[in-house]
Every structure is written in C-alpha cells, then in structure tokens.
Computed example of a mutant assay.
Amino acid sequence: MSLFRWRKRPVETPTPLPPAEIPAGQRVYAIGDVHGRFDLLQRLIGKIEADNEARGAADTHVVMLGDLIDRGLQSREIVDFFLKQPPAFAQLHFVMGNHEEMLLKLIDDPDLDAMLHYLRYGGRELFESYGAPRAVLDAPDHFTPDTLPSYVPAAHRDFLSTMHDGVQFGDYFFTHAGIRPGVPLAQQERQDLRWIRAPFLESRADHGVVVVHGHSVSDAAELLPNRIGIDTGAYMTGVLTAIGLEGRDQWLLQTRGGD
C-alpha cells in the first residue's frame, strides 16, 4: 500500500448536509501532518495561541492529527516539545497516524524487511534525529533489526503508544486518515482510521459527523460538507495547516516556510 500520493481532486458539488457544530463554550483547533517539521509546528502553535486569545475565553482544545514524525528532520524535537514544554493555553489531544503505528510495530517486533520499508518512507530521517550513526542507517542489514529502534528513548515510545484512534467534539470526528463509509464510528477498524484513502476521500455520503483528517496530501485544505482534509504536505511544501472550529464557524491558519 502506498504511503504517499499527491492528490489534486476536482471540487464537486456535494449533497447538502446539516451544518456541523462544536458544543457551546468550546473552541477546537486541529493541526495536520507535521512530519518532522518542528520549525513549522512552533510557528503554527504561536499563531493558534494568538488567534485563541483574540477570540476571547473558551474551553480550548488542540488536536494533533497524527504523523508528527518521519520524513522531516526534527521528529525527536517534536516529541521532546510535547513531553517537556507543551502549550498551556489549550488541552492537547494526540491522534495516532500510520507513521507512528509503523515505528511502534518495529519497536515491538523488530523485522528487517519492515525496517527497510520504513526507512524508505521517512524512517531514516527519524532515526537521524535520534542520533543513529550513518553506518547503521546505510547498512541496516548488517545489524540486528532492533538496533535502530533502540535509539528511540522509552519516554518517547510511551508517548507515541498512548495516542488515540480518534477524538470527537460535537458533530466533528478527528482521526488521522478517515473512516470507512457506511460503518458506525464505534465499529471502525484501526486500519481504516490510520490508512484509508479512496473509499473515504471519494465518498460524499453523510457520515453522521464531519471527519477532520490528514494523511492524504492536497495542494490546499479541503473543506467539504462531510470531511475536512488539512494535510498540505508540510515536509516538502513548507505549508503546515490548522483549522479552527467554534459553534458553526470554521477558519484556517497556516505556517509557510520563510514566514
């Protein structure tokens, strides 16, 4: 299964659905796939904090939609940030992405073939951030399969393993990849929540909630009646996107490389 595919989809006119709403008194921000770009994340959180303050008092939440790690060069810095100096203006929620899932599987069950696959899809950059030597990165088959995973500290492993499958606020459900159309939320499979693409992306059905997700890169945020996609490919485009939600209002915040 491909881990990455750039999708520029035509905008269709979907069937009108009831407007989604965040419960009164709450304000929710969601941040798309960071993929090792701590520089962009820091600036975006600063923008969110300023935006939140300007809008007045609320019960504020920030949802990280998964794939904090891999591809970019600052995976360790991101996890350190959330462990040591997390933002205090909001309650944080962490959703697990497919990249966190892949790393945790390698830690729990080291396997050379899986490691070689992971290294090709962003794992090399992660292990570089944890200080793994080039000799191991260049020739992982010369070492035992648990060599590279051993560079990830236990505290970081514990942090990643406690991430959620999804979080719901009012009429919005936040998960990494999406949901299987036609399946109730309580019966969704983790495989779909972390990996699904076409069946979800192409659906215009009423899911009963608006699904806010990352995972599938688009050239701009996609705000549709049944889903909101905010993965704008931060690690290669330099654009990290967040959405703010309050009542029936929706607004975007972005950090661009060079801001």
Rank of each mutant, 00 (worst) to 15 (best):
A242I: 01
L223P: 01
L185S: 10
Y172S: 06
S75V: 03
H35N: 10
G56W: 11
I196A: 02
Q42C: 12
R197E: 01
I31W: 07
D109R: 14
D109C: 12
P16V: 05
E53K: 15
N98M: 01
L103N: 02
H215I: 00
G66T: 00
A114F: 10
P140L: 09
L83D: 04
W251F: 14
T232V: 02
T147R: 14
R194D: 00
G97Q: 02
D39R: 05
A54I: 02
G66D: 01
D113I: 11
L201P: 01
S218C: 14
R27V: 04
V167Y: 11
L201A: 09
G36Y: 05
F4N: 10
L126F: 07
Q250Y: 11
F169S: 02
H176N: 03
D141R: 15
L65W: 02
P145F: 08
H117S: 13
F38A: 15
P110W: 07
T162M: 14
F4T: 08
E246V: 10
G233R: 03
Q187D: 15
V28R: 06
V136R: 12
G247T: 05
A24G: 12
L252P: 00
H35F: 09
E100R: 07
D33K: 04
E12W: 12
L103Y: 07
P87H: 04
P225S: 06
D33N: 10
E21L: 14
T147F: 11
D165Y: 11
G32V: 00
G56C: 11
Q191F: 13
I230D: 00
T144L: 13
D165S: 15
G257K: 14
R9M: 14
H176D: 02
H35L: 08
V210M: 07
I22A: 06
S203K: 09
Q91R: 15
L103V: 03
P181D: 02
T255Q: 15
G229D: 00
G214N: 00
F143A: 10
P149T: 03
P199S: 12
Y235S: 06
I179T: 07
D141T: 09
G257F: 15
A132E: 10
L119N: 02
L253H: 06
T237C: 11
M115P: 04
P140T: 01
S161T: 09
L119Y: 05
A205M: 10
E53W: 14
E53A: 14
D231M: 00
V212Y: 08
G122R: 01
F81M: 13
M64N: 08
L252N: 05
G229P: 03
V95N: 00
L68R: 00
L41R: 05
R157H: 13
D111A: 10
R5K: 14
S161E: 12
V239F: 06
